[in-house]
Structure formats: structure tokens, C-alpha cells
């Protein structure tokens, strides 16, 4: 996912640092928007990200993944500003339980006749609203893996946590997102029985 213009050449020729960084600007702006959810704050975060990237350019290896490097800096700046990282430890859940909970949620929706909700609701607004309700540690992992397409290992490197933590946060975040999407869909008029309380563990 290096920011190399593959439309111009089939070979992955490393770009000069500045050009490579500039090519990632839209990606970094999108990532910053996902974190801050406010356009002005996002632009400030992007500017600070590039400032720090320029100051620490000696740590960047030519030919490596510029986008991933900038995302990592962006995430660090964001967390530092919000000073929430220290509150985000020791709360990760068992990924297996989270996986099973997702299946239980689906079973509950089948029972209430709502299992086709995700095929019917308008995605962008619903996801944005549901994502906004998640805390940073859950939102970041969904953005990196489910939206930006990074695998668990890359996300773990960027978030500076073990792969197991990425899995547990991701699976929990997906369940929380699904529950909020179901609520959103019901609010939008897709009525049905409520999810059984035993499924909801938040």
C-alpha cells in the first residue's frame, strides 16, 4: 500500500519522500477525519502529522509503506492530543466469545425476522453514526482493518499492540457496531422485536 502511482508504471519505483508523502494526503485526511469526525480538527491533525513526519523522516525507510507510516504518526498524534491511550488498557475481551456473540446476534435477528437489515439500510450514514459512538480503541481498529484494508498484523504494528489485541478489539467493535446498526435500522422504520437482552453485553 505504498503511495506509488501504479497507473504510470507497472514497476514499484520508490518516489522521493516528499512526493510519496503528498500522494498519501487524501488517505491521511480520510483517516484523520475518521478519528476526529470534525473537518477542522482533522485538517489540524493532518498538518501536525506531516510536521512530525518531516521531523522524523530519518526513521522512514525508502521504499517502505508511506501510508502505513503516516497513519501510525497520525494515530499517535491523535492519541497524544486526546490523552486517552492510558485509559485504554486491560479492557480487551476474549475474541472467541466475541465471535460467538456475533453469531448469537444474527440468530436473534433471524428469530425476529430482521436478518436482512444489512442489505436494506443506507450504509454510509448508518456506519458513520455507529462508528462515532465507539471509543477510539474500537473505532481505530475498524477503520484500519475494515475500511482501510490492513490485515491484523499491520494493524497491530500501527496500533503498537499485539495481534491478539487487534483481534479481540476488532471482534468486539464489530459486535458493538452491529448492535448500533440494528438500533439505527429500527429507528429508520425497519421494525421488529428487540434483540434479546442476553445477547447484549455492553
Amino acid at each position: 500500500m505504498a503511495c506509488v502511482d501504479s497507473t504510470l508504471t507497472n514497476e514499484r519505483v520508490p518516489l522521493p519522500f516528499e512526493d510519496d508523502a503528498l500522494r498519501c494526503l487524501d488517505d491521511v485526511a480520510r483517516f484523520a477525519r475518521s478519528l476526529t469526525r470534525a473537518p477542522d480538527d482533522a485538517d489540524d491533525l493532518v498538518q501536525e502529522t506531516y510536521l512530525r513526519a518531516l521531523r522524523s523522516r530519518h526513521t522512514w525507510k525508502e521504499g517502505s509503506d508511506m501510508r502505513r507510516w503516516l497513519f501510525t504518526i497520525c494515530k499517535n498524534v491523535f492519541l497524544r492530543v486526546h490523552e486517552r491511550a492510558r485509559d485504554q488498557v486491560a479492557l480487551d475481551d476474549d475474541p472467541t466469545n466475541e465471535t460467538l456473540a456475533a453469531v448469537l446476534l444474527h440468530s436473534a435477528l433471524v428469530a425476529s425476522g430482521e436478518h436482512e437489515l444489512f442489505d436494506r439500510i443506507s450504509a454510509a450514514d448508518a456506519i458513520a453514526a455507529a462508528l462515532a459512538e465507539l471509543t477510539e480503541r474500537f473505532r481505530m481498529v475498524v477503520v484500519l482493518v475494515d475500511m482501510e484494508g490492513y490485515n491484523y498484523e499491520d494493524a497491530a504494528t500501527m496500533l503498537e499492540v499485539p495481534v491478539g489485541t487487534v483481534r479481540s478489539r476488532l471482534f468486539r467493535a464489530r459486535r458493538l457496531l452491529q448492535e448500533r446498526l440494528v438500533e439505527h435500522a429500527r429507528d429508520a422504520g425497519f421494525t421488529g422485536a428487540r434483540v434479546t437482552p442476553s445477547v447484549r453485553t455492553t
Binding site: A29, R30, V103, H106, F118, I121, A123, A124, D146, Q178
Partner: peptide, 21 residues
């Protein structure tokens, strides 16, 4: 179950905001 979760992941992926600097 798997089809439902696959649809969910597709939904999330396609909801990636379109942001141009």
C-alpha cells in the same frame, strides 16, 4: 451466519468516507 457477517463487512467497507484533502 457467514453470509450475514460477510454482508456486514461489505457494508462497513463501502461506508469508507470519501475525503479529498
Amino acid at each position: 451466519h457467514f453470509a450475514f457477517e460477510h454482508a456486514f463487512l461489505e457494508l462497513v467497507h463501502t461506508a469508507r468516507p470519501r475525503v479529498i484533502a
